[in-house]
Design a protein around this nucleic acid. Structure first.
Lengths: 239, 239
DNA sequence: CGCCTCCAACTGGTATAACGAGTTGGAAAA
DNA sequence: TTTTCCAACTCGTTATACCAGTTGGAGGCG
């Protein structure tokens, strides 16, 4: 029983990564400034170039730094939107392999979008309404072009979220829409469904336009309840 | 003007990454199964080992595969919770460098937690209430231990979210709490504040216990409004 | 015969050297 | 002074070698 539970001896790049992270957090290198070159870090930290590279690639993958061929790495200006894009692959993997998570995410989206509609109704102004009407017009024009219709559909939801004035909401709604519809892209072309979607969007818009918070939330709930049920049905026929 | 906007010639590891991603999505390698070894992929795709390694490290960083020293890489079982942990560094970077995003995230948290309280009130049962009371008891015991108090505080909010039955909610609330309090960890020790927090938590619990959806949402809103204001104040004195 | 031990052949992790490719700043020319 | 251009520096990629952990099977032990 002499086998001590020796920890798996973390990779050499981990401490390197931590050191770089520290430089960024301490402000040793501010946003936009450049990190030391790989060769310099290599001799400063006493490890080989692969370890340095792996740590930097990891930070780049997390969106903390930007690496350009030929130039030094810079500390990246952070952005919620870019971060959301970055986790897209991971989220799609989760949704594809965990039916339960898919249902949970749809539920979360519905809850979230209803609140967005509620807020939108309480802050709406003529400009907002005009923008939403323009998007609905785009949807009417694209009623026979599945890809364009879907894009405009997404813009409608995102525009409502944007009305809140909180860009995080817009980014989240956009991401949720993309993840869920990408996953069910095969049933976009069901004929006749576009008209139903369009009608429901109009109802939501009307409720928002008259400042009816509860009504717009309810209209949004109805809309997403139908869409979610549709998704669920397509899963059944698929499996 | 002969300079064509030649694209920056994406890194060699990108197509490798795409190829691996395809194998995973196609089901060529299912969850839990192993990917080909680095050497094999290297000759199959006609690139050097670093390119293979970089692509695999990227996928591992995204949580799609798990790499163990000495064994082949396996397709990871996806998990929302792990994904949230993974984006923690990125989110902290964003919050540290974008005061606006910090405010937006606090607003999002408030909106989200109010809905959690609302749902909790409508589904509450004796077991739920007992668990929440136990957590509040923990907070009372830890009233002079900032770290323990903070941990119990987080558990209280997470438990409320868990009552919804949707694990995504719990994961999100936990992550939001961690990000925001980590960022303001220095003011945890303000004396007397713990008692106020405790009192507000009790109010929330009481509203949930009597099934008062609107009341619990309002109590949660009051609680977070105060906390957010406190955070904002600490930022002012800091800058 | 079945179980355990141990080692050989994998596997990923790291180091080094070398060269390709892109960027950049300053020297040289106009 | 402005423009041009090149040399030095940077990251990107390859090749090779060796270290370190894992694994499965051969062989020994019960």
């Amino acid at each position: 029983m002499a086998h001590a539970v020796r920890p798996p001896r973390q990779k050499l790049s981990a401490p390197v990564r931590d050191a770089l992270l520290d430089m960024i957090r301490n402000g040793t290198v501010a946003v936009g400034e450049t990190l030391p070159s790989e060769r310099e870090l290599m001799e400063r930290l006493g490890v080989g170039r692969p370890a340095i590279r792996e740590a930097m690639q990891s930070l780049a993958g997390a969106g903390l730094i930007e690496i350009r061929h030929g130039g030094r790495a810079r500390v990246a200006a952070p952005s919620i939107g870019r971060m959301v894009d970055r986790i897209s692959d991971t989220m799609k993997h989760i949704l594809a392999n965990s039916p339960a998570s898919l249902e949970h995410l749809k539920e979360a989206r519905a809850l979230f979008e209803c609140e967005m509609a509620r807020i939108a109704a309480s802050v709406r102004g003529p400009t907002h309404i005009a923008r939403l009407e323009a998007i609905i017009f785009d949807m009417e024009r694209a009623i026979d072009g599945p890809a364009d219709f879907r894009a405009a559909d997404g813009r409608f939801h995102q525009e409502i979220a944007a009305m809140s004035g909180n860009p995080i909401y817009g980014a989240m709604i956009g991401a949720l829409f993309g993840w869920l519809t990408d996953f069910h892209a095969d049933l976009v072309a069901v004929p006749g469904l576009e008209r139903l979607t369009l009608a429901e969007h109009r109802e939501i818009l009307e409720a928002i336009a008259r400042g009816d918070a509860a009504g717009s939330a309810a209209a949004m709930a109805d809309h997403l309840l139908r869409v979610n049920a549709l998704y669920r049905q397509s899963n059944l026929t698929r499996g």
